[in-house]
């Protein structure tokens, strides 16, 4: 299921321009991080994936088909969107029911729904919350419930808006692992995030946005070690890049543009004459 944006423009209420000519292609099974300043158009972009917003100019093509004719409900079978604020979707009196709700809407049988609900809760490590009221949970837990409600539908394409906000390190790791598993199963994973370390560690491709346009699109280490791009998107470079730069000024043989711990380790070992 290839996603193609062809010169997509969008303005809220016809005046507040949010996207000005976005073109991109995300292939089946890719894993992409979308980064950028607040108000760069990231959320607007992913709202175009399932037709919540329709381009005022340009086209969104899914699997070779313009999605203009498809309803949001139809597209939601293929594309799961997980929102930033879980409170915008939780409304039932138990976590379990909350997860079954989406499955029922999309037409899964009760038995299958039940089974998916159990496995999803397990995957996210929240089985113990199944009978709890979502409103009595902590912010981070609610966020995971909202995530579970979408994951349970096992969409071909999964898009998440700021999934790491309010999650501790362990939850972040668990989330990353789960997203990787989803990706290994051949699903496309798209994440909107400000969390640069999260992007560098888990997403091979990064798209940087500023002012409603794409300013860079490529391998995450390349995009996120480019000074101009980082500046335009008001991001700080990944810690490993900062470390590499510092080391580079002392030992010029260590390259500046490194993003991963393993890379830096290898370079340091080589520089000091150890095993590589």
């Amino acid at each position: 299921m290839t996603i193609i944006f062809e010169d997509v423009h969008f303005a809220y209420d016809g005046i507040y321009t949010a996207l000005r000519g976005v073109s991109l292609q995300i292939d089946d099974g890719e894993s992409v991080a979308i980064m950028g300043t607040n108000g760069a158009g990231k959320t607007t972009l992913i709202k175009h994936l399932n037709g919540l917003l329709r381009p005022s100019q340009g086209r969104v093509i899914l699997d070779g088909m313009n999605i203009r004719e498809k309803s949001v409900a139809e597209l939601s079978r293929i594309i799961g969107l997980v929102w930033q604020d879980p409170d915008h979707q939780l409304f039932l009196d138990s976590v379990e029911k909350e997860i079954l709700f989406g499955l029922k809407n999309l037409g899964f049988s009760p038995e299958e729904s039940e089974e998916r609900c159990v496995t999803t809760l397990e995957k996210l490590g929240i089985s113990h919350l199944a009978k709890r009221r979502p409103f009595s949970l902590s912010g981070g837990e609610r966020k995971r419930v909202a995530l579970a409600s979408i994951l349970a539908t096992e969409p071909r394409i999964l898009a998440l808006d700021e999934p790491t906000i309010g999650q501790d390190a362990r939850q972040k790791k668990r989330l990353a692992k789960m997203l990787r598993e989803m990706n290994d199963e051949g699903r496309t994973v798209i994440v909107v995030t400000h969390d640069i370390e999260f992007a560098v560690e888990n997403f091979p491709r990064a798209i940087a946005m500023a002012n409603g346009q794409i300013v860079a699109d490529g391998p995450t280490p390349v995009v996120l070690s480019n000074e101009t791009v980082l500046d335009m998107c008001s991001l700080t470079p990944p810690q490993m890049t900062i470390a590499a730069r510092e080391l580079h000024s002392i030992i010029p043989s260590i390259p500046e543009r490194l993003t991963h711990v393993t890379e830096l380790e290898r370079e340091i070992l080589r520089a000091i004459g150890g095993e590589s």
């Binding site: 409900a73 799961g80 915008h88 809407n105």
Partner: peptide, 15 residues
Amino acid sequence: DAYAIMDAQKSRGVE
């Protein structure tokens, strides 16, 4: 908020 909520529920298949 109402619009954001509608968006969220629509993405869960509420028509």
